[in-house]
């Protein structure tokens, strides 16, 4: 019995390790290009040893306003996340506690919004944003991404709230809360792990999103994802410079995932019973 489970653990860990390495390999490659001298990046066979240099970073900072790019990315993802949660969490709650028999249908309808190809909505949205003068600003991307993400958040939170027995909110009502008080003080903290998962999802989506800001932003609102993918081939930008720039696109999201993940695990194990 014990030996079987030991063998299983070894098997599981090995699998996890192999999968992790497979996923990390391209990242390592990308990162390493940033520290290689330009003439060694494409050397065949790839060289495992090289003299690290910061030249690529100097080039990146000379060619891009890195701080502005990162700031745009942060504003767009935070804005999208906040707005999506602000709309999606109460909407999911309302649907979950609704006595209408169409509430589940509605929730799936919201999920369907998330499923439509974004490009189909992008063109009419582009025209709308142009007409109200928001085209080119952060707002255009935030609103568009919120539309997609908030539908998803609504659906996710619908399932989280649906799984939460209404007793606790009812206890809060008899304890003297208003409906709104019961929602904020009891229901929301009880599904904290779900909210964090949604936030993480929205952040990742917006941070990595390329297509929408590409269409909807102009130079000064451009996030780092757009800069990265449109830069190659223009000016004197090399793979090495891109590798350096990619640091600023990857590191924040990795850090955030690490921090949020801790809250996520905490939230998931905090529930009663």
């Amino acid at each position: 019995m014990a030996r079987v489970s030991t063998r299983r653990i070894v098997l599981e860990r090995t699998t996890a390790l192999v999968v992790t390495i497979l996923f990390l390999l391209p990242v390592c490659w990308l990162i390493s290009t940033a520290y290689k001298p330009s003439n060694q990046i494409f050397s065949v066979p790839p060289r495992l040893t090289f003299t690290p240099t910061l030249d690529q970073f100097r080039a990146a900072f000379a060619l891009f306003d890195v701080a502005a790019l990162v700031r745009s990315s942060v504003i767009i993802s935070l804005g999208t996340t906040l707005l999506s949660l602000l709309l999606g969490v109460p909407a999911g709650y309302a649907l979950a506690r609704s006595r209408s028999r169409y509430s589940a249908g509605f929730a799936y309808f919201f999920l369907a919004i998330r499923m439509i190809p974004a490009v189909a909505a992008l063109i009419p949205f582009y025209l709308m944003m142009r007409d109200i003068g928001l085209l080119g600003s952060w707002w255009a991307v935030i609103v568009f991404n919120t539309m997609l993400n908030c539908a998803f958040v609504t659906w996710m939170m619908f399932s989280y709230f649906k799984a939460l027995p209404p007793d606790m909110e009812e206890a809060a009502l008899t304890d003297g809360c208003t409906q709104m008080g019961a929602f904020w003080k009891v229901a929301v903290p009880a599904v904290r792990s779900g909210i964090i998962a949604c936030a993480l999802f929205c952040m990742m989506f917006s941070w990595n999103d390329f297509l929408h800001p590409m269409f909807l932003t102009t130079l000064d609102a451009k996030p780092i994802s757009v800069a990265l993918l449109t830069a190659y081939g223009t000016k004197d930008i090399t793979w090495g410079t891109l590798g350096a720039l990619a640091h600023f696109s990857t590191i924040p999201i990795v850090l955030m995932a690490l921090v949020m993940n801790r809250y996520f695990v905490q939230g998931a194990t905090n529930g009663v019973q």
Binding site: P165, D167, M168, E170, A171, A172, V186, P189, A190, R192, N270, G271, V272
Partner: peptide, 8 residues
């Protein structure tokens, strides 16, 4: 019946 304590 479920006690409905506030878990947080």
């Amino acid at each position: 019946q479920s006690y409905a304590l506030y878990p947080h």
